[in-house]
Nucleic acid binder design. Structure first.
Lengths: 243, 243
DNA sequence: CATCTTATGGTCGATCTGACTTGAAGGCAA
DNA sequence: TTGCCTTCAAGTCAGATCGACCATAAGATG
């Protein structure tokens, strides 16, 4: 599902080939836009099949590398990013998803902090796209992104993953903005505050954000004793978990 | 992750090997037990590693077979079962999960109807176990079952998968019994009725179950226009979906 | 027919949610 | 300096939801 196959078999391989890819989300405020929205980095394919088209970052799975590690490594090699959150999404293995060969892709999804995403290199072969308005991608990657988007939006409501878009300290307005951007609808500030406080996932500090043209908002931090992901039995010491 | 590797490499393979396994759940009422509980069929390994230990049904992935099809086929070959529900669970790929080689397993989970499970063959090398009280299994299969159990219990609350344990027509008491068995706690009959009716997932027929020693309960059927799984974009025409 | 059991429908109060109001606390402009 | 503007933060209120519980219905059984 990516740039370079380890070997180039002249004949049909006797077994499926295993690749790892990652859907990476970051929030980005477009110039002129009021709200931030979800963007993701794609890499341009430099060889057949789908040469020249955009695709998810990824690569073949080395025999001696964990799945999550391979996802983190390949996405870092191509985009320079280091995600704050990384979770397995789904494994895609349809027979016809790669012309002429059988490739099974274990796909991860990742969230990166906004400022980290801003630092990320854009180049000839790496570019950010708005998640809701993508071109036709290589392979079945449009479907994969759709599914990742759906998972992100669904999971945001019952877990703490919004954390991954923010830094160490943040205001409730910033946290609300993350939710609004992902869910694509405005949330009542007062009700949002009440909900978050009831969830006990954030801790109020006694610091305030200064320099605003209005009343300074209190800064919060996340309660790090709470598992952000809600993976059940996989949440603890486990395989498949990113480094 | 299963009986027979296609080839027996004398040296370390150049790439990870791909297997498919399935966690199969059925409800079974133990003799003397009041409530039914979750059981699952395991197969005894007939060769190393873990020879003699119990493991999930599965097998190597053929190059020319869809993931879900391979799961359905291998579980049918070993247990004779045909599940009513089959969904991808997770892909396990830790380096040390199979001694001496790298195996990545795409694991599915399945639900079978109670009467189908009753017909299923038990034999020397296939036996049913209570899901909450398993022996030490081969590989990382205990972890896999734990995760599948967690997913089943979590998903039951927001989807319609309880359907898969029942036949075409059923009473609300039978549906409630499924929920009670999976969640392992009693549910108030009146409140359960109210919740189910509000969800609009079942359709009342004008037939009643006769022969009970009390007031005959009305029979219901599921609204087949509703997707039972809630898979988002993967819910429609998709890869990875079972046959 | 009296009694037993589950089915089915309804009440009551606690809790949750969304819409909205009110006062607080800064910066900013006249 | 003094209002005014904005957002912060706390509170109110009505409708929806949910669990605990009560009451009646409708069959079987002896």
């Amino acid at each position: 599902m990516s740039p370079a196959p380890r070997t180039k078999p002249a004949h049909e391989p006797a077994t499926a080939e295993l690749a790892v890819s990652t859907v990476i989300f970051a929030l980005h405020t477009e110039a002129g836009a009021a709200l931030p929205s979800l963007w993701l980095p794609l890499v341009r394919r430099t060889r057949e099949p789908f040469q020249g088209q955009w695709a998810l970052p990824g690569g073949w799975l080395p025999v001696d590398e964990e799945l999550g590690k391979a996802a983190a490594r390949t996405l870092n090699e191509t985009t320079g990013l280091t995600p704050k959150y990384l979770e397995q999404l789904y494994t895609f293995g349809a027979l016809d998803r790669s012309p002429g060969r059988r490739v099974v892709s274990v796909v991860y999804w990742a969230l990166v902090q906004s400022d980290e995403a801003a630092r990320a290199a854009e180049g000839e072969n790496v570019r950010w796209f708005p998640a809701d308005d993508l071109p036709a991608l290589a392979f079945d990657h449009n479907l994969i992104v759709d599914y990742a988007l759906w998972r992100l939006r669904t999971k945001l409501e019952y877990s703490r993953i919004a954390h991954a878009f923010l830094g160490e300290m943040f205001t409730l307005a910033q946290l609300r903005e993350v939710h609004e951007a992902v869910l694509q609808r405005p949330l009542d500030p007062a009700n949002f505050r009440r909900t978050i406080e009831a969830s006990k996932t954030v801790i109020a500090t006694d610091e305030y954000l200064a320099g605003t043209p209005h009343r300074p908002p209190r800064l919060y931090r996340f309660d790090s004793t709470i598992d952000p992901a809600d993976l059940g039995p996989l949440g603890r010491a486990t395989p498949g978990k990113a480094s």
